[in-house]
Amino acid sequence: MHRTKEQCDAQGEWIAHVLRIRDRQDQTAFAELFRHFAPRVKAFLIRSGSDAALAEECAQEVMATLWNKAHLFDPGHASVATWVFTIARNKRIDLLRKQRRPEPEELTWGPEAEPEQADVVALQQETALLRRAMQALPGAQKELIEKAYFGDLSHREIAAQTGLPLGTIKSRIRLALDRLRHAMN
């Protein structure tokens, strides 16, 4: 892609701003970057499915990260815009993960009651059954289940790690879960 002279000049100016933040904690440079990028980041997040309040909060965090991590910016690796929007994407993913992990509703204090012996035995039997069902899975499905549920990786992270297409990952995991459900019943 060919850049216009104005785009190159603007990119050079944004780089200079980040370097001034990094080297001198220049608040004027930060204010200019904030005025330019914060509304764009917020709009990007809203287009990505975030509500306005979450997008605003996330945009604020992105700009705070820019201020605190200016020393990590490498103009040889990415443009300022690419760097800022990568931070935004990562912040959005972090916030979505937090939303998916509900906080415990009630924290108990003191020792927990001992489980009933019948419950312990039933849990041991279910665990043994699950172990056998996992061993019976085809190798590729077993590996993906382990990465997703024991390795706590997202489907995209598994795809990046294995080189398999995302659709293949999802299909194999779905098939494996169906087999496990059938084996457990």
Rank of each mutant, 00 (worst) to 15 (best):
M1V: 14
R3F: 15
T4D: 13
K5N: 14
K5H: 14
Q7N: 08
C8I: 15
C8L: 15
C8M: 14
D9C: 10
Q11R: 15
G12P: 01
G12V: 13
I15N: 08
H17P: 03
V18L: 15
R20C: 05
R20V: 03
I21D: 09
R22I: 03
R22L: 02
R24S: 10
Q27P: 02
T28G: 13
A29M: 04
A29S: 11
A29C: 02
L33A: 10
L33Y: 13
F34T: 14
F34Y: 15
H36V: 13
F37M: 04
F37S: 07
F37G: 07
P39I: 09
R40A: 11
V41D: 13
F44L: 03
L45M: 08
I46T: 12
I46C: 12
R47I: 03
R47L: 09
S48R: 12
S50L: 15
D51F: 11
A52D: 05
A52N: 07
L54W: 13
L54F: 10
E56C: 03
E57C: 06
A59E: 04
A59K: 05
Q60Y: 06
A64W: 15
L66S: 08
W67V: 04
W67C: 03
K69I: 01
K69Y: 07
A70H: 11
H71M: 00
H71T: 02
L72W: 10
F73N: 02
D74Q: 11
T82K: 09
T86V: 04
R89K: 08
K91D: 09
D94I: 04
L95E: 14
R97T: 04
R97N: 13
Q99S: 12
P102N: 09
E103S: 10
P104I: 10
E105Q: 15
E105G: 15
L107W: 11
W109T: 06
W109P: 00
G110P: 06
E112H: 09
A113K: 01
A118N: 10
V121G: 02
A122C: 11
L123D: 01
Q125Y: 00
E126G: 06
E126S: 04
T127M: 00
A128D: 06
A128S: 04
A128M: 01
L130T: 00
L130E: 01
A133P: 02
Q135D: 14
Q135M: 02
A136Y: 05
L137Y: 07
L137F: 07
P138N: 07
G139I: 05
G139D: 12
G139H: 08
Q141G: 03
K142T: 03
L144M: 11
I145G: 01
I145M: 13
I145E: 04
K147D: 06
Y149R: 00
F150V: 02
F150M: 09
G151C: 09
G151Y: 14
R156I: 05
R156L: 10
E157T: 00
I158N: 00
I158R: 01
A160H: 07
Q161R: 06
L166K: 04
I169P: 00
K170Y: 08
R172F: 02
R174D: 13
R181D: 09
R181V: 12
H182R: 09
A183V: 06
A183D: 12
M184W: 00
M184Y: 01
N185G: 11
